[in-house]
Every structure is written in structure tokens, then in C-alpha cells.
């Protein structure tokens, strides 16, 4: 490391400039989300566009208005709730599928794995109409269940789980059998805790997917009680009465959880993708 100190400095500077470049819209958004529309317009052409206003009584005005006058907090909580359900259901369903493909012998196992892997390349938009028709035919439109059901199974997550479970040692399962551990109990009390990284990775991906999804919830949900944050964001920002500052406040609010997740789990995300990508081709 020491040897390359000059290239390292250059690299650091380049990365710093680049990250500023990527960050500047975020900083702009954050700074202006505290301003009145008049102030935003006034600051528009100067560097003050990147500086928040002075801290005074009306500093959080935009946020307070959004929280008071709209149901945005409720939409965010809805989305958190859906994400939580989908994380639990997704880890169980995709995890079990991945485990079966990794460790349980059954006819045509490799074929199955291949088919599931091929499903990864099908973009979800192409099957969304079919999903919609299914859910509609089952009378599940406008229900949480109807929203959740088609989202649980995820070939990419099955594949991630499988890659990690393949390398779990078989003798631990054998030892567990002699300790009177049932297969189901083994999965939940041994396999998942031994594979914390992939569980975290899948959970994070699931959360981000649910949080950022717009199309599917907009098809399933019409009742405003059940809406998700992205739909809420859209309806708030497209309302003519919403000011520029309020729009930026809503966007900031919807961005914060994503930033927190990345900050907390960046290691798991990278580790998960790298470790699963490098094993077994």
C-alpha cells in the first residue's frame, strides 16, 4: 500500500471529485427543501443554491406542511410494512427454494436450477400484465395480499441463496440430525444464521425493490389507504398546490431510508454480490 502512495492520492482526489459530481443534485435538493419557493428562485443562479437557509422558526416549514396536509407519512409506513412482510416471506420462500436446489437431491435438480436462473433475465415488466390479470381474477385487487403475492418469489434471490448454501458443510447437517434437529428447524436455526450475509443482502435488495417500485403498486392499489410512498410522492408532486420546496421535502423524505440502508449495509451488499458471484461460476 505504502509503495503506491502517489497514485493513491491521485485516485482519492479523482474519486472525491467524482463523488461531488454525483452528490451535487442531492445537496441541492436537501438545501432547497428548507426554502420557500421565492428563496429557491432567488438563489437559483448562485452558489447559495447549495446552502440551506438560516436556522429559524420556519426552517422545517415545508416538511411540516407535507406531513400535516398529506398522508405521506402513512404511505411511507405502508411501504415499510409491505417491505417487512416481503423480506420475511421472501427469505423463507426463496431461501427454502435455494436450499433445495443446493442440498437436496431430487430428479433434474440441475435443470430446475438452470430454468430458475434463466428466469432472472425476464424483466418483471413483461409479466406484469399476467400478474395483474391473476390478481384481478382472484379478486385481490386493492388488497395487501394481492400486492404481496406475485412479489414473493424472486429468481435472483433464489440464485443468491443457492450459491451460498452450496458451500455449507454437509457434516453440520449430519451432526444436527444426530442432535435430533428436524430439517425445518435446521433451516431456520442453523442455515439462516450461518448465512447471515446473504440474508442481509436479500433483505436489502427486497427493501429497495419495494421502496422504489412504482408500477406494480400503482396497478394493484387504488384505495388511498394502502398506497405506497412512491405513489404518494407522485400524487403529491403532481398536485398544483404543492410548492417546489414541498416537492423537494417529499423527495428528501423518500430518499433518506435508502441512504440509511446503503450506509448501514454497503458491506453486506458488496460482500453478498461478490461472494455469490465468484463461487461456482
Amino acid at each position: 500500500m505504502r509503495k503506491n502512495s502517489i497514485p493513491r492520492i491521485i485516485l482519492t482526489v479523482i474519486l472525491f471529485v467524482m463523488s461531488l459530481f454525483f452528490l451535487f443534485p442531492v445537496i441541492w435538493m436537501l438545501a432547497n427543501s428548507f426554502k420557500t419557493d421565492a428563496a429557491i428562485t432567488a438563489d437559483m443562479n448562485s452558489l447559495r443554491a447549495f446552502v440551506p437557509p438560516a436556522l429559524n422558526g420556519s426552517f422545517f416549514e415545508n416538511y411540516v406542511t407535507v406531513i400535516k396536509d398529506t398522508d405521506f407519512i402513512r404511505y411511507m409506513l405502508n411501504t415499510l410494512f409491505y417491505a417487512a412482510i416481503l423480506i420475511v416471506a421472501g427469505v423463507i420462500v426463496n431461501g427454502l427454494a435455494g436450499y433445495a436446489l443446493a442440498k437436496i437431491k431430487f430428479p433434474f435438480r440441475e435443470r430446475w436450477a438452470l430454468i430458475i436462473m434463466m428466469l432472472m433475465i425476464v424483466p418483471s415488466e413483461t409479466i406484469i400484465t399476467i400478474n395483474f390479470l391473476f390478481v384481478a381474477k382472484m379478486g385481490l385487487l386493492n388488497t395487501i395480499f394481492g400486492y404481496i403475492l406475485p412479489m414473493i418469489v424472486n429468481p435472483f434471490n433464489i440464485f443468491l441463496f443457492r450459491q451460498v448454501f452450496v458451500s455449507l458443510p454437509d457434516d453440520v447437517w449430519e451432526a444436527a440430525q444426530l442432535d435430533y434437529c428436524s430439517p425445518v428447524k435446521y433451516f431456520f436455526t442453523m442455515v439462516l444464521p450461518m448465512s447471515k450475509t446473504v440474508v442481509a443482502t436479500v433483505s436489502v435488495f427486497t427493501f429497495l425493490g419495494v421502496w422504489n417500485d412504482y408500477l406494480w403498486p400503482s396497478l394493484v392499489f387504488t384505495s388511498s389507504d394502502l398506497l405506497t410512498a412512491q405513489i404518494g410522492l407522485n400524487s403529491i408532486t403532481s398536485n398544483d398546490n404543492t410548492t417546489m420546496g414541498q416537492t423537494l421535502a417529499v423527495i428528501t423524505m423518500i430518499t433518506i431510508p435508502v441512504i440509511i440502508i446503503y450506509a448501514l449495509f454497503s458491506k453486506q451488499i458488496v460482500e453478498g454480490v461478490v461472494s455469490t458471484g465468484s463461487k461456482e461460476g
Binding site: 458443510p169 457434516d171 451432526a175 444436527a176 440430525q177 444426530l178 442432535d179 435430533y180 442453523m190 450461518m194
Partner: peptide
């Protein structure tokens, strides 16, 4: 007969301990 019903205990070459459990929990798990 299933392994668990044969009245046997086994020690494995690579130990096969439960990695997320303490020594005490490993021993008492069965």
C-alpha cells in the same frame, strides 16, 4: 432406521460444530 434413531453419536473429521453457537450451546443442543 433414521440416523437419529440408531442410538449413535458421531465425531467428525472437520468437527462440524454449529458456528453461531457458543461452546456450551453446541454441547447442550442435542
Amino acid at each position: 432406521v433414521l440416523p437419529r434413531d440408531r442410538g449413535i453419536a458421531m465425531v467428525f473429521q472437520n468437527y462440524a460444530l454449529y458456528p453461531h453457537m457458543t461452546v456450551e450451546k453446541n454441547i447442550s443442543y442435542g
